[in-house]
């Protein structure tokens, strides 16, 4: 690897350009969000000169974002916790325990993972309606759990499978039953994976529009992203206000990511043992 000194710098150039390309859309959105509607129509691409912070205030009040923030936080937190719990239980059983039907169970999960939501949209809503769960928080939560659970199980199964059997066997020797192994060994060791999946599922729930629109029809129960998307009428004309709302939705995600990002990447690294 002699030539790597120069090569590294050569490689760094396109990578830096790509990095700019990943940040650029955010800045672009912010720029438009700070324009007045008039400026947006006249000159979409140019830098804002108006700094119309009023757009953010309008978006906040018109989309009832205060209330919807609470709704979204509630639904996201409960959904994610449930997904993580159920998925790590199943992942542990599928990766470390042998039982009749494990193959079929894993197959079901693999298949469920590949179903686009639109495919089962109408019968799914009908099922929820049969359980009288339309327009309820538990209904929306179960919708998210069933949508995002399969992938999380798959991920946790793969992750737990890397933890050597010797570790769990040692814990058994120390007098733990299966639940003890799960609670005292697997969950702590799985923390980095749980954190990654937690963040990812939180993103999915937080950014979802379609499922939330279908399940929550009552205006007061809506989630944040739905409230913001309703800022666009039949004719989406006030783009700056809409994008201001979008930024207000995205902001907490970016903050959370920046707080946890070292643990997500570094954590996964530390937790993984050779597979």
């Amino acid at each position: 690897m002699r030539s790597t000194g120069v090569a590294r710098w050569l490689i760094a150039v396109p990578m830096a350009i790509l990095a700019l390309a990943t940040i650029y859309p955010m800045l672009y959105t912010l720029n438009i969000a700070l324009k007045t509607r008039y400026d947006y129509v006249i000159d979409r691409g140019g830098l804002t000169t108006t700094f119309a912070f009023q757009n953010f205030v309008d978006a906040w009040t018109q989309a009832n974002m205060g209330r919807y923030y609470l709704n979204s936080i509630l639904v996201t937190v409960v959904s994610v916790l449930l997904i993580l719990l159920i998925a790590s239980m199943a992942g542990f059983a599928l990766s470390h325990l042998t039982f009749r039907g494990s193959r079929a169970a894993f197959l079901l999960i693999l298949a469920a993972m590949m179903i686009p939501f639109q495919v089962i949209m109408v019968p799914f809503i009908k099922t929820l309606s049969d359980f009288s769960m339309i327009n309820t928080y538990p209904g929306l939560i179960i919708a998210y759990v069933s949508q995002f659970l399969p992938f999380t199980i798959y991920f946790m199964t793969a992750y737990f499978a890397r933890i050597p059997k010797e570790i769990t066997e040692a814990a058994r020797v120390d007098g733990n039953n299966i639940y003890g192994v799960f609670g005292r060994i697997m969950l702590p060791l799985g923390r980095p994976a749980l954190l990654s999946m937690g963040i990812l599922n939180a993103l999915f729930c937080w950014n979802d529009i379609l499922i939330s629109l279908l399940v929550m029809q009552s205006p007061s129960q809506r989630t944040l992203m739905v409230g913001v998307s309703a800022l666009r009428g039949q004719y989406p004309d006030n783009v700056p206000t809409y994008l201001s709302g979008v930024l207000l939705v995205v902001l907490p995600l970016i903050v959370v990511y920046l707080i946890f990002q070292r643990q997500i990447t570094a954590g996964v690294t530390a937790g993984a043992t050779k597979g």
């Binding site: 949209m121 009908k126 309606s129 279908l214 009552s218 205006p219 998307s229 309703a230 666009r232 009428g233």
Partner: peptide, 24 residues
């Protein structure tokens, strides 16, 4: 109770809701 839906999803939402028996 007025429910404002985003227009670009309106008819699919309405159709799904009617189909599932939860329409307005």
């Amino acid at each position: 109770e007025v429910v404002s839906q985003p227009f670009d999803q309106y008819y699919t939402l309405l159709g799904s809701a009617i189909e599932a028996g939860t329409g307005p």
